[in-house]
């Protein structure tokens, strides 16, 4: 299931892996998310660690903003994550609205100075490139926000690594240089 990994986390004497996986709470969780706990166990056995703790970082702020949902509408979707993901085998589920401030411009722009337009362009899926005339600067804000979420989550929950779908590989490779040191495991999700 692990396509490849990049190590970068600092030495971890506790031998407890803390892995994070981030997802947007746009729609209720899909069944494929159940593979992540299996991947986490594979990582533990590969790393020879005593135990592994898997955190889901569920971003409920961005979909609410992007889809102009009310708090209640978003909460209905987010609740599915908080109830279902523990059943899938996730040890912790954190909603971004619980640990992040929405006053984000300063934080986002601190990343914006370090990412070029060309890098951003390379990350866009072909479908978006094909309709680039319709793209707005909000697309960039979304990209920066996602990096910001990961940055906060890595610190807040003392994550040693991230599990990332291989489809998001390019995004993470760009984001990685802006984030605190961590391991990353790219997962074949198809």
């Amino acid at each position: 299931m692990i396509a490849y990994s990049i190590r970068g986390s600092p030495p971890n004497p506790s031998k407890v892996l803390r892995l994070g996986f981030s997802v947007w709470a746009r729609n209720p969780p899909k069944d494929y998310l159940s593979i992540y706990p299996k991947v986490a166990r594979e990582v533990r056995s590969e790393a020879g660690s005593d135990s592994v703790l898997l955190c889901a970082i569920v971003d409920d702020i961005w979909p609410r903003v992007m889809l102009s949902r009310t708090h209640k509408e978003q909460q209905n979707v987010s609740d599915h994550y908080t109830t279902l993901l523990p059943d899938f085998g996730f040890h912790e589920v954190h909603l971004t609205s619980d640990f992040m401030e929405e006053t984000a411009l300063g934080a986002c722009l601190s990343y914006a100075t370090k990412v070029t337009v060309s890098e951003f362009w390379k990350l866009l899926p072909q479908s978006k490139k094909n309709t680039s005339d319709n793209l707005t600067l909000a697309e960039m804000v979304g990209f920066l926000w996602h990096i910001h979420v990961l940055g906060i989550a890595l610190n807040e929950f003392q994550l040693t690594g991230l599990l990332v779908g291989i489809r998001s590989e390019f995004f993470y490779l760009t984001a990685r240089k802006l984030l605190p040191p961590h391991d990353v495991y790219f997962i074949n999700t198809s």
């Binding site: 702020i61 961005w62 903003v65 992007m66 929405e102 006053t103 984000a104 411009l105 300063g106 986002c108 680039s132 005339d133 319709n134 793209l135 707005t136 600067l137 909000a138 697309e139 960039m140 804000v141 926000w145």
Partner: peptide, 17 residues
């Protein structure tokens, strides 16, 4: 500094890349 993501999004969404 105190602008919320919602406020930022509303403005940036109006500017074509």
């Amino acid at each position: 500094n105190p602008m919320t993501l919602q406020e930022i999004f509303a403005i940036f969404q109006q500017i074509n890349l």
